[in-house]
């Protein structure tokens, strides 16, 4: 079969300076490339984030989570259209799971965001969850930092609402919208998956189907029993996103929730908490990386392992020994 080796390869490496220049000029290509570097934890990515950090702090971050096929992408699409109608710029991060067996992922959320991709004020990025504990929270946080620095007014993060993925995303956003469908048992599923704890706003999508009203009543009843905050009402809304119905109302509630966060001082408190967690995580990661590199370099690890195998040492004493060796050393 004919093939063309001429055209092959490829990625012109950019210097950091060039990349930053293009980024600051608002070039999509540079934005996309910075996101990849951050996502891949490429060498120097932290320095890149550090140079961009002073540009951040403006974006409003909204998480849209819920069961597979609930209509999250359709809702995100409608929300983004309303936002650009208000002259707001929008960044979208659509997270889909990585297959634990192959490490690959099929990212299909753009299918429901067709017209949006060409809008000059909208940038959509699909992201695979890529596994590693806490890694998704880091990656989405840092990608949202990049979009914020690029100047996006709103950042919408779509993710499937199961277990750790949903919890990780909730850590990154200011407002979490949980999307359910009228199908039987979905509200119970939501409780099991821990979605009740992270939701600020509930949406029952596909309200054209039977059971939406009943489910709204049920859900409201459960919520009335177990509120996290007495001064927020945890609204339950019905939408038919496929035809855009109800999404304008959803946006009103998102605005209202934001006002509430600002008015009560919760937003500030929350940002402070998140920052504390972020710096702690960064610090311990950095220390760990440096220490591990040292250990690997010195061959101390191999030594103690050999000793343990010979019965001269145990893992607990080994750690003490290793600590002794790195003590006082420059980290």
């Amino acid at each position: 079969m004919a093939s063309n080796t001429e055209a092959m390869r490829f990625r012109r490496p950019w210097s950091e300076q060039e990349l930053l220049e293009q980024f600051i000029k608002g070039k999509t290509l540079a934005l996309a490339r910075v996101i990849s570097l951050v996502e891949n934890e490429a060498p120097g990515y932290r320095q890149l984030l550090s140079s961009l950090y002073h540009r951040t702090g403006k974006a409003k971050k909204i998480g849209i989570t819920g069961s597979t096929g609930a209509g999250k992408s359709t809702i995100v699409d409608e929300l983004a259209k309303l936002l650009v109608g208000r002259q707001q710029t929008v960044g979208i991060i659509a997270v889909d799971p990585t297959s634990p067996f192959t490490g690959g992922a099929l990212l299909g959320d753009r299918i429901r965001m067709q017209d949006l991709g060409l809008h000059k004020d909208v940038f959509i990025r699909s992201m695979a969850s890529r596994g590693s504990l806490g890694g998704l929270a880091r990656a989405t946080r840092e990608v949202s930092v990049v979009l914020d620095a690029f100047g996006k007014d709103f950042i919408l993060i779509e993710s499937v609402g199961v277990g750790q993925v949903a919890l990780d995303i909730a850590e990154v956003v200011d407002t979490t919208v949980v999307v359910l469908v009228p199908e039987s048992g979905d509200s119970i599923q939501a409780m099991k998956a821990g979605l009740m704890e992270i939701a600020d706003i509930f949406v029952i999508n596909k309200a054209d189907r039977d059971g939406a009203d009943r489910m709204a009543v049920e859900l409201q009843a459960v919520l009335d029993l177990g509120r996290r905050n007495n001064d927020w009402d945890y609204p339950v809304l019905k939408t038919e996103a496929r035809h855009g119905h109800g999404v304008d109302l959803l946006l009103e509630h998102i605005d209202r929730q934001r006002d509430y966060l600002v008015r009560t001082g919760y937003l500030k408190k929350r940002k402070e908490e998140l920052l504390r967690a972020e710096v702690r995580q960064l610090f311990s990661e950095t220390v760990r990386e440096k220490m591990e590199r040292r250990l690997a370099g010195e061959g101390s690890l191999d030594e103690v392992i050999a000793d343990i195998l010979e019965g001269k040492l145990n893992p607990y004493l080994a750690v003490d020994q290793l600590l002794e060796r790195v003590k006082g050393a420059e980290i």
């Binding site: 996309a32 192959t102 690959g104 992922a105 990212l107 753009r110 060409l118 990025r125």
Partner: peptide, 25 residues
């Protein structure tokens, strides 16, 4: 995907403009 790649599937009725813009983003 099964070969370990991340596949962005954009589906049907794509114009060249849509394809290139998605690829860049």
């Amino acid at each position: 995907r099964d070969a370990g790649m991340e596949v962005i599937y954009v589906g049907l009725r794509q114009t060249p403009e849509m394809i290139v813009e998605s690829a860049i983003q």
